[in-house]
């Protein structure tokens, strides 16, 4: 059998295998095309735009210029045409990073106990909890953010109720503050923290917790030495899923911040809208992307050797 030439059936099978692999490669083409047209191409376009000059009514002038990047840090004096350091954009970037970091940490603190609770329910109950967590996704983010606005504004549900019960005389100003923006960010991104944490914790073997107690670990030590290290993939994934979109968030700061506390997302949108400075918007978007990539690079280097399950 070994020495005999391949039987006709085997040859046909080999041909079929080749055909199948050719066909399956062919089947990936639509997805690749979409990624290229809507992912790679716009990125290239943005890259090119950032090195051009703005056209008066939006759009670009096809002339090479590094003004967009210069304008990010400096302002050209109207009278003597010298460059002056203008930290306005940097402040917005700093604020965005601070908001995003704060949101990530609070999401982690709120999300971990929630995910732990879900993962320790009987298996048949867990899917219900996952469903409850995903309910917010059933309606539009904009609608939900406007709803928050109605709850926290001066004549909103909270203030009206507090005044009605004579707990306060004057409404507490919550809308259009840092608090409002962070509340909006927390609300928008908490599920993105809970779900990866849950999937990590759900896979965990809780007999390890029992073993920890058996070996004299206190509850805090079990959490620190066993549960958290094993949930690390979920913590990393959840943190990235919250931090990155929170950094570029557009809707919550726009609606709840009232345009007074801009975040990067709003800033970029402004350049393409009322600012009519597409190159500057493009440069700002690329700088954000570069910052995220650099941060991720250092993050992954510090987290050398991610924890593997099993």
């Amino acid at each position: 059998m070994m020495d005999a030439p391949l039987s006709p059936a085997a040859l046909v099978a080999a041909e079929n295998d080749k055909a199948v692999s050719r066909r399956s490669r062919f089947l990936t083409l639509p997805a690749l095309a979409i990624v290229f047209v809507f992912g790679v191409l716009p990125l290239v376009l943005i890259c090119i735009y950032s090195f051009l000059k703005p056209y008066q009514n939006g759009g670009v002038l096809w002339q090479f210029s590094t003004d967009a990047y210069l304008n990010f840090l400096f302002q050209r004096d109207i009278f003597d045409d010298t460059l002056q350091f203008a930290p306005d954009f940097l402040i917005i970037y700093g604020r965005s990073i601070w908001y995003a970091l704060f949101t990530t940490v609070v999401c982690l603190l709120l999300g971990f106990p929630t995910a732990y609770f879900m993962a320790t329910r009987p298996p048949e109950q867990r899917n219900w909890w996952v469903l409850l967590i995903t309910i917010p996704f059933w309606s539009n983010l904009l609608v939900r953010t406007v709803a928050i606005m109605f709850i926290i504004r001066d004549e909103g549900l909270i203030n009206d109720a507090l005044i009605y019960f004579h707990i306060i005389d004057k409404p507490i100003v919550m809308l259009y503050t840092d608090f409002a923006i962070i509340l909006g960010l927390l609300y928008s991104f908490l599920p993105f923290m809970i779900l990866p944490l849950y999937s990590s914790l759900e896979k965990m073997d809780f007999r390890l917790v029992e073993a920890g107690y058996d070996l004299y670990a206190s509850r805090w030590q079990v959490l620190k030495r066993i549960i958290i290290p094993l949930a690390k993939p979920g913590i990393v994934a959840g943190s990235l899923l919250v931090f990155i979109p929170a950094l570029g968030a557009y809707v919550p700061p726009l609606i709840l911040g009232g345009g007074r506390h801009l975040m990067i997302g709003d800033l970029i949108a402004q350049q393409f809208g009322s600012g009519r400075n597409w190159p500057l918007g493009s440069a700002q978007a690329l700088i954000l992307m570069a910052a995220v990539l650099v941060a991720l690079y250092f993050y992954s280097r510090n987290e050398a050797g991610p924890v593997k399950h099993g």
Partner: peptide, 9 residues
């Protein structure tokens, strides 16, 4: 333990 429950990390 029956499953040993060794810490995988």
């Amino acid at each position: 333990f029956q499953s040993y429950a060794l810490f995988p990390h």
